[in-house]
């Protein structure tokens, strides 16, 4: 099989489910028969801090890290975190960001305020910026915890995997009692966006 190498960068705030999202993407790439690597850092950044996770898949992947200005997709769970890591996106890459803001304490006490129009700042790096209120969608199915899978559903439209492959990945990585709600979240996220 000949696959195109792709890289996706997930960013967000510790506790938002960034790691599960990147795990699911890695799993679906494996199911599809690709080589896949992903990288992130645990520990200090466990809660409340800025989180970044890289996933790369295709024929053969060497470094698990994504180079600056090379990511095909930047999927951010929080607008400020999209800005923080925007230099990973390649020129014509897709930025998909959740619109729900999470104010860091430093925005209250520090000298730099939270930007008024965070999304606008992203356009300097790529024209393909897409917003999604993933929390609203998650709350439609009464599950604020599936924001991550809503976003995954949204970016799935840019990726070469079938729904069946995605659902198999969810089945494998998510606790049995949450599988259904995650599948729903995935489908809702997919419906919510068009590129």
């Amino acid at each position: 099989m000949n696959f195109k190498n792709m890289s996706v960068v997930f960013t967000g705030v510790g506790g938002q489910g960034v790691i599960l999202a990147s795990d699911l993407l890695s799993e679906v790439a494996l199911i599809h028969g690709m080589d896949v690597k992903k990288a992130e850092v645990h520990g200090m950044a466990q809660r409340g801090g800025s989180v970044i996770s890289y996933v790369k898949f295709g024929n053969k992947i060497f470094s698990p890290l994504v180079e600056k200005r090379s990511a095909d997709i930047l999927c951010s769970f929080e607008p400020l975190e999209a800005i923080r890591y925007i230099d990973f996106i390649k020129e014509d890459g897709f930025v998909i960001t959740n619109t729900v803001k999470n104010f860091p304490l430093t925005a209250i006490f520090g000298k730099i305020p939270y930007p008024d129009n965070p999304i606008e700042l992203l356009y300097k790096f790529t024209s393909k910026v897409y917003e999604i209120d993933a929390l609203k969608i998650a709350l439609e199915i009464k599950s604020p915890n599936v924001v991550n899978v809503v976003l995954l559903g949204a970016i799935s439209k840019l990726l070469p995997f079938s729904d069946d492959e995605w659902f198999r990945a969810i089945q494998k990585k998510v606790k049995a009692k949450f599988v259904e709600v995650n599948k729903q979240a995935f489908s809702k996220g997919k419906e919510a966006i068009s590129f």
Binding site: V13, G14, M44, A45, Q46, R47, G48, G49, S50, K68, R69, L80, E81, I83, R84, Y85, I86, D87, P104, L105, T106, A107, G110, I112, P113, Y114, P115, L121, K124
Partner: peptide, 14 residues
């Protein structure tokens, strides 16, 4: 590449 200046988000006590 110049990334806009934004507030840091260090890990914090829960």
């Amino acid at each position: 590449f110049e990334v806009p200046k934004i507030p840091l988000r260090p890990p914090i006590l829960c």
